[in-house]
Design a protein around this nucleic acid. Structure first.
Lengths: 154, 154
DNA sequence: CCCTTAATGTTTAGTTCTAAACTAATGATC
DNA sequence: GATCATTAGTTTAGAACTAAACATTAAGGG
């Protein structure tokens, strides 16, 4: 059983060290995101909180009374996902829904607010730690570029 | 049925427009990642290719004969995930494993190489399009900052 | 008022990923 | 070479997400 089972007639390696600049940037962005996301997930584990749930907790706390659709838009996820997240978090007593017509308004409980406060606090500390490889000026530059890119992506 | 069911005694909104610089950068990075990822996924859909599968195809093609563990490390995913991805892609005839002792070496089929070539081509074009809000100089700066951050994250 | 249209939230099926337990091959030490 | 720890890959259960179909409520136009 040699190579005839698949018929690979090309050279085994295609030299492509020549990715263009936008692609290199994209690849690096993916990697940094994945690493930061994984670290954040680990740091939230002790609160029994996923990154997504933290996002919900945070957004719902910035301005209470938001609807589920507003949350979905802000978090860039589907409304079906928001339903699932809220179901779990409501069951844990972090927040509650208040129906008004066909929309639900989301409010945090005291437990939810307290968890949000503590999670934000430790989260900011760990983010600062992870970003400390860049000087404040560099972080400012990075933020500006990302903001520009974000706005251009509708 | 007023607020007594949950006991929210705090003011309904906590003013926190004052996120610090590292956190602002982190938030923006998340958003840009999510948007780029969603767009990439959409553009790969016509090849019947997920972003993860593309990553496998790409990495396996750069240097053929890699082991599954090497792929997992390079892609920052678990080896269990690699098994699932390879199972599907092997069934579709994009690649094949060759056992050697307790390790598997991964090789692309002709079909896999062809798909990789085409996917990279269209992918680079769409990435260039999405990044076009930044000038080449800005992209270079962004790449440099991300690279620095990536290296600092072990 | 009735009908159509749109918007909100829910459900369901399927995909993608992880963590952890498991199997099997390797290697080190005695 | 027998034993014990390590390493590569597999399996499984469950979490997180999406897309699409569904139900319900609201809004507009005749």
């Amino acid at each position: 059983m040699a190579t005839e089972t698949t018929g690979d007639t090309q050279p085994p390696t295609i030299a492509r060290g020549t990715l263009d600049l936008p692609t290199l940037t994209w690849v690096r962005l993916m990697r940094v995101y994945q690493k930061l996301h994984a670290r954040t997930a680990r740091s939230f584990k002790c609160w029994n909180l996923s990154v997504s749930r933290f996002d919900v907790l945070n957004h719902a706390g910035v301005k209470e009374g938001r609807t589920q659709q507003e949350l979905a838009d802000a978090l860039l996820v589907t409304k079906g996902n928001v339903v699932q997240l809220l179901d779990g978090m409501e069951a844990e007593g972090l927040l509650y829904r208040r129906r008004s017509g066909r929309t639900n308004h989301i409010y945090l409980t005291d437990r939810g607010r307290e968890l949000r406060r503590k999670a934000i606090e430790t989260h900011e500390a760990s983010i600062a730690q992870e970003m400390s490889a860049l000087s404040p000026e560099e972080q400012q530059t990075l933020l500006g570029l990302l903001r520009k890119l974000d706005r251009a992506l509708t």
